[in-house]
Nucleic acid binder design. Structure first.
Lengths: 110, 110
DNA sequence: GGAATATATGCCTCTTGTGACATATACTAC
DNA sequence: GTAGTATATGTCACAAGAGGCATATATTCC
């Protein structure tokens, strides 16, 4: 299993100790993780666009630097709700989020 | 305030006792509620398409009838995470959700 | 090398969301 | 009316997420 895939799985809270775990990752679960990754990427992109560091963004969205870091890493402990609420506070509109979602995380190699 | 708007606000956990509360509903909060409503509508639509009742859907998504009812009502106690996970288990793809989101809840009058 | 800054990780407490159950209401058909 | 079915609402115990803090790991300057 390549590093990228492993990272993605772990972002969803999955351990990649053996093949069984991998095979039990249903389509729904995989899609869910990809959605989180897409939103996470979008959040980071918007933050960098504004030349903000994570601490500054934390103030804007009413959270802490560590949460922001976890959001951008699509950590298993952050919800889509938090990602969406943060993005909205950064000025994103519903359709912006829809776009980010449908485009999904950009894959370098497929 | 018309009944429709009131319903929407309450779906987001807002009480409409006076004008202050209404004015404090930021754009971000309004968008968030609308996203939930859009997903809720989509969930109901997909359930009806399959001629399922809420109890049957509950089994599919691994929850209870009451939760399904609350999901479809965009109740303040249901998260976007739950709505999204349920929709994915119903076979929706990321792009389907994106479409539902960008179209938003259909408004009769604007 | 060290200092300064930015980001990542681990943990803890408090809050929120979840599933489940009971119960209430709505709607049909008889 | 009653019975049956579907949906809605209220509550609760438990699980999951959140914010915050400390600390670790970059990264960039001197």
């Amino acid at each position: 299993m390549d590093t990228k895939t492993k990272k993605k799985l772990e972002a969803g809270g999955w351990k990649t100790g053996d093949a069984r775990d991998f095979l039990e990752l249903s389509d729904a679960e995989a899609e869910f993780i990809e959605m989180k990754l897409a939103l996470a990427q979008d959040l980071r992109a918007r933050r960098l666009e504004r030349h903000l560091n994570q601490t500054q963004l934390a103030r804007i969205v009413g959270s802490s630097q560590s949460r922001v870091a976890k959001m951008e890493a699509a950590d298993p402990t952050v919800s889509i709700d938090l990602l969406v609420r943060s993005l909205l506070k950064l000025g994103a509109a519903r359709k912006d989020l829809a776009k980010a979602l449908s485009e999904g995380p950009h894959r370098a190699v497929s």
